[in-house]
């Protein structure tokens, strides 16, 4: 069986990829995709610790992930709506051209 720390390393790698993508890309939707990848990496950590933990029959880690997926879905919906609203206003999806809060 695959040992626990391989899952943790994979989750760390996914988190780093999402983080680097969110920092380097200019398009707002790609930044949001990076944030979704980071959330998924955290979920993989939770599932792995639940499975290898002392009490997997308590289901706590698994339900934590279910709720995290719900929160992430809400975040994605509101985030994409915000991106569409900002795009309508500024006519650009590039995050470094959106410099002022004044509408």
């Amino acid at each position: 069986m695959t040992a626990l720390h391989y899952y943790l390393l994979l989750a760390a790698l996914l988190f780093a990829i999402g983080f680097a993508g969110a920092l380097t890309r200019r398009h707002a939707i790609v930044v949001l995709m990076g944030i979704e990848l980071m959330l998924n990496a955290a979920n993989l950590n939770l599932i792995a610790f639940w499975r290898y933990g002392p009490q997997p029959e308590a289901l706590t880690g698994m339900l934590f992930v279910v709720f995290a997926i719900g929160v992430a879905a809400a975040e994605a919906a509101v985030g994409l709506a915000l991106i569409i609203a900002v795009y309508r206003h500024y006519r650009t999806p590039q995050v470094d051209e959106i410099r002022e809060l004044k509408g």
Binding site: A16, A20, D96
Partner: peptide, 18 residues
């Protein structure tokens, strides 16, 4: 232009985190 002004900084920070 797809990348920000200093993409190497972002990649470096990501590599440091990992």
């Amino acid at each position: 232009q797809r990348w920000g002004r200093a993409p190497w900084v972002g990649l470096g920070i990501g590599g440091l985190v990992f």
